[in-house]
Deep mutational scan, measured.
Amino acid sequence: GEEMDTAEIARQVKEQLIKHNIGQRIFGHYVLGLSQGSVSEILARPKPWNKLTVRGKEPFHKMKQFLSDEQNILALRSIQGR
């Protein structure tokens, strides 16, 4: 696969979550399948791509996919709003 700019992906995700008022817990649960603790760690201190294991890269693939389609963001927003 291609190398990803993990810091940039994390920054964009944080931006979207704040902009749409989506909590990290909801994002972690529905998008990444991770706990809030793992999510906040990944978003606060993303490791460089070449330092990640295959498993460590997974959340970034999912985040990139999440960012690529605004429908994903809107869907999360409606879950959050319940």
Score class of each variant (00 low, 15 high):
G1D: 14
G1E: 12
E2W: 07
E2Y: 08
E2H: 06
E2D: 08
M4Q: 07
M4G: 03
D5K: 06
D5E: 08
D5L: 01
D5G: 04
D5Y: 03
T6H: 02
T6V: 01
T6P: 04
T6A: 02
A7C: 10
A7V: 09
A7E: 12
E8M: 08
I9R: 02
I9S: 02
I9Q: 03
A10Q: 01
A10Y: 01
A10R: 01
R11F: 06
R11W: 04
V13C: 06
V13A: 04
V13R: 03
V13N: 03
V13F: 00
V13G: 03
K14R: 09
K14H: 15
E15K: 03
E15M: 07
E15Q: 10
L17P: 03
L17R: 03
L17V: 02
I18Q: 15
I18H: 11
K19D: 05
K19G: 03
K19I: 06
H20F: 12
H20Q: 05
H20K: 04
N21T: 05
N21Q: 12
I22S: 01
I22M: 03
I22F: 04
G23F: 06
G23Q: 14
G23E: 15
G23S: 14
G23V: 07
Q24R: 08
Q24L: 14
Q24C: 09
Q24S: 09
Q24K: 11
R25M: 10
R25G: 15
I26V: 14
I26R: 04
I26C: 11
I26L: 13
I26N: 06
F27M: 01
F27Y: 00
F27H: 00
F27P: 01
G28Q: 04
G28H: 04
G28D: 05
H29T: 12
Y30F: 09
Y30A: 10
Y30E: 12
Y30R: 07
V31Y: 07
V31P: 00
V31H: 00
L32H: 02
G33V: 01
G33D: 06
G33N: 09
G33A: 05
L34A: 07
L34V: 08
L34K: 05
L34R: 04
L34I: 11
L34H: 06
S35L: 04
S35Q: 12
S35T: 12
Q36R: 11
Q36P: 15
Q36E: 14
G37L: 12
G37N: 12
S38C: 14
S38K: 14
S38V: 15
S38Q: 15
S38A: 15
S38E: 15
V39P: 03
V39G: 02
S40P: 06
S40D: 15
S40W: 09
S40N: 12
S40R: 13
E41S: 06
E41A: 09
E41D: 11
I42S: 02
I42V: 09
I42L: 12
L43P: 00
L43R: 00
A44Y: 10
A44F: 10
R45H: 15
R45V: 07
R45W: 07
R45A: 14
P46D: 01
P46M: 04
P46V: 05
P46S: 02
P46K: 00
K47A: 09
K47T: 12
K47Y: 04
K47R: 10
P48S: 08
P48C: 06
P48I: 04
W49R: 03
N50W: 08
N50V: 05
N50Y: 08
N50H: 10
K51S: 13
K51C: 09
K51R: 11
K51A: 13
L52Q: 01
T53C: 11
T53I: 03
T53W: 03
T53S: 14
T53A: 05
T53H: 04
V54M: 15
V54P: 14
V54Y: 12
V54S: 12
R55C: 11
R55W: 10
R55P: 08
R55G: 12
R55Y: 10
R55I: 08
R55N: 08
G56F: 07
G56K: 03
G56Q: 15
K57F: 02
E58Q: 11
E58L: 09
E58K: 07
E58R: 06
E58C: 04
E58G: 05
P59T: 15
P59A: 15
F60N: 00
F60H: 03
F60W: 14
F60E: 01
H61N: 09
H61G: 05
H61A: 10
H61R: 13
H61V: 13
K62V: 05
M63F: 02
M63A: 02
M63I: 05
K64H: 07
K64S: 08
K64Q: 14
K64R: 11
Q65M: 11
Q65F: 04
S68E: 13
S68A: 11
S68C: 08
S68K: 12
S68Q: 11
D69N: 12
D69M: 07
D69Q: 07
E70Y: 08
E70H: 13
E70K: 10
E70D: 11
E70T: 09
Q71K: 14
Q71P: 02
Q71G: 12
N72R: 08
N72E: 10
I73G: 04
I73N: 04
I73R: 03
I73Y: 03
L74R: 11
L74G: 08
L74E: 13
A75Q: 14
L76A: 03
L76Y: 00
L76K: 01
L76D: 02
R77Y: 09
R77T: 12
R77M: 10
R77D: 06
S78G: 13
I79C: 13
I79F: 10
I79H: 13
I79R: 11
I79G: 07
Q80M: 10
Q80D: 10
Q80W: 05
G81S: 12
G81F: 08
G81N: 15
R82Y: 10
R82Q: 15
